[in-house]
Structures are given as C-alpha cells and as structure tokens.
C-alpha cells in the first residue's frame, strides 16, 4: 500500500508542475494580457493564471516539461516588465 502511494505521488508530480512568478508594474488588464500571451506562447506552459492584486502569475507546466528561472525572466523582460520573485 505504501509503495502504491509513493508511486502515485511520483506519477502525479510528473503530470503537473506549478510555478508562481511575481511581476512588478503589472497594473492593468493590458499588462496582464501581455504576460498571459507571452507565457502561453511558450510550448512548455499548459495554462496561465494571473492575480492582478498580488501581481502573481501562476504557470502550470505541461507534463514532464520545465521552465528555468532564466527563461522566465527572459520572457518577462522581453515584454518590458520585471520579475521580483519566483516560487516553485
């Protein structure tokens, strides 16, 4: 039973991975849609959720895919914004 649970946890961890990115200066829907489009254009990203109040973008990655901090900062910087924090 214990082995089964461990296996299930490992399987789940390969299916979905969330990253939270805090972006400075994102004050309106235009800014948010800019970031949403930029992240959705990345082939590793499954979905994007944006909280304008906290300035946090939650990225759900595709199974087995990853996005490095460097790549995240590059995506944000190329749209004219600044990353303040990345949580995994």
């Amino acid at each position: 039973m214990f082995k089964f649970l461990i296996m299930m946890m490992m399987i789940c961890s390969t299916f979905a991975s969330n990253i939270q990115v805090q972006v400075q200066g994102m004050v309106c829907d235009f800014c948010a849609s800019t970031m949403e489009t930029a992240f959705k254009n990345n082939t590793n990203v499954q979905s994007v959720d944006i909280n304008l109040k906290t300035k946090i973008i939650t990225l759900e990655l595709k199974p087995g895919k990853d996005l490095s901090d460097k790549e995240i900062k590059s995506i944000v910087t190329n749209q004219g914004y600044v990353v303040t924090k990345i949580d995994r």
Binding site: Q24, G25, M26, V27, C31, K55, G80, Y81, V82, T84
Partner: peptide, 9 residues
Amino acid sequence: KRWHYMHAQ
C-alpha cells in the same frame, strides 16, 4: 523609459 513599481507603472 518605463518605471516599474509593485503597484504602479
């Protein structure tokens, strides 16, 4: 130039 702040731009 763009100025960034946590709750302003």
